[in-house]
Amino acid sequence: MATFGTLLFTWVNGKLVGTDPDGNRYYTERTPSRRRQRRWVIYKGRPEASRVPPEWHAWLHHTAPAPLNAVGRWPWQKPHQPNPTGSAQAYLPPGHDLAGGKRDRATGDYEAWTP
């Protein structure tokens, strides 16, 4: 959820450009006050930057002049997934303490160091 100040600034100065499938709303300034127009996002739910899809990320960082949603998706493109680091869906390699701490025995090319 955005802070009260961000919501007030958006209500006074913001113009809605669009939304993404997650429900995040993207805004730009109604009247640009500088050379580059400000662009920002109001997240639906907890603010998490990795929830911004690549199409909107390019627009937010002035890489694309317009959101890339109108281009369409190629058949090989997968749907956007936020970064799972620190969550229950995070990847844990074999031998990680949280994955049980057991790993396959090393082959003959590994020798433990002993001081």
Rank of each mutant, 00 (worst) to 15 (best):
A2C: 01
A2M: 00
F4S: 06
G5K: 08
G5T: 02
L7F: 00
L7M: 09
L7V: 02
L8D: 04
W11R: 08
V12N: 14
N13F: 15
G14S: 03
K15A: 13
K15G: 12
L16S: 14
V17C: 01
T19F: 03
P21W: 02
P21T: 05
G23P: 01
N24F: 07
N24V: 10
R25P: 03
R25L: 11
R25W: 09
Y26E: 09
Y27P: 09
Y27Q: 10
Y27V: 07
T28W: 02
E29W: 03
R30H: 06
T31K: 08
T31P: 06
T31E: 12
P32C: 11
S33G: 13
R34W: 03
R34Q: 08
R35M: 02
R36P: 00
R38W: 08
R39S: 04
W40K: 13
W40Y: 10
V41C: 15
V41D: 11
I42P: 08
Y43R: 01
G45H: 10
R46N: 11
P47I: 05
E48W: 03
A49L: 12
V52L: 04
P53Y: 00
P53S: 11
P54M: 10
H57W: 14
W59N: 07
L60R: 10
L60A: 07
L60N: 10
H61M: 13
H61E: 14
H61F: 13
P65S: 13
P65W: 12
A66W: 05
A66R: 13
A66V: 09
G72E: 05
G72Y: 07
R73V: 07
R73W: 00
W74G: 14
W74T: 15
W74Q: 14
W74H: 14
P75F: 02
Q77S: 08
Q77E: 15
K78H: 14
K78E: 13
P79Y: 09
H80L: 03
P82D: 08
N83P: 10
N83R: 02
N83A: 04
N83C: 11
P84Y: 07
T85P: 03
G86Q: 03
G86A: 08
S87D: 10
S87E: 01
A88L: 06
A88G: 04
A88K: 09
A88Y: 06
A90Q: 15
A90G: 06
A90C: 10
L92I: 02
L92M: 13
H96A: 15
L98E: 15
D104N: 06
R105G: 11
A106M: 09
T107S: 12
D109G: 12
Y110Q: 00
Y110H: 04
E111N: 10
E111F: 11
E111S: 14
E111I: 14
W113Q: 06
T114D: 05
T114G: 05
